[in-house]
């Protein structure tokens, strides 16, 4: 059963017709050719498909596209690109930090890691606690332990976690100063 929907992807409005069974991830990858978000498990268990969905980080493999008609999606390709759409070069401080700290190897989980980090930094700036916040009533300070916990929904089989954490911490500290 088909449905007509519209998605705004990395600043570009796209209209498409999808089978109701098509997930947001497959709509992006198979229908729109937007392959920055990756498919690692298709069940919300690895985080490689993470994008910013209406401004918040979300896995796209467990979301039906039809249920997100009208949504605004930012992938890692569009992150930091501003209104001009997707540029040719990495545009976001997280991109540069991941390169500098070698926060990836095979690169397959990386766009999801970066979108997750962008969403997570916003969550932390909004004062959201995490499972390792000593007192959830208090505003947490974003240290390495907080970043590790908050990024645990993004698996990296290459084991680039120390670089990922260093990259994100660097960007977070850059924002604070």
């Amino acid at each position: 059963m088909d449905a007509d929907i519209t998605l705004t992807v990395d600043g570009e409005r796209r209209a498409l017709t999808v089978d109701t069974r098509v997930t947001l991830l497959d709509a992006l990858r198979d229908r729109l050719g937007v392959t920055s978000p990756k498919k690692g498990c298709d069940h919300g268990q690895c985080g490689t498909c993470t994008v910013l969905l209406d401004g918040r980080r979300a896995t796209t493999c467990l979301a039906f596209a039809v249920a997100h008609d009208g949504a605004e999606i930012t992938t890692s390709a569009g992150l930091g690109a501003g209104d001009g759409g997707v540029g040719a070069e990495p545009a976001h401080p997280l991109h540069r930090a991941f390169l500098e700290h070698d926060g990836f190897q095979c690169g397959y989980c990386t766009p999801g890691q970066i979108c997750s980090a962008a969403g997570m930094l916003a969550e932390a700036e909004a004062g959201w606690p995490s499972a390792v916040t000593p007192d959830v009533a208090e505003r947490p300070a974003l240290d390495e332990a907080e970043i590790r916990e908050r990024m645990s929904g993004n698996l990296c089989r290459c084991g680039a976690y120390p670089g990922i954490v260093a990259a994100i911490l660097g960007v977070a500290e850059g924002r604070r100063t």
Binding site: T35, S36, V86, H95, L99, Y108, T110
Partner: peptide, 13 residues
């Protein structure tokens, strides 16, 4: 690296 962090590096699929 640049192609990988943005997700533009094309894997098999």
């Amino acid at each position: 690296g640049p192609a990988k962090v943005t997700g533009r590096a094309p894997y098999a699929y």
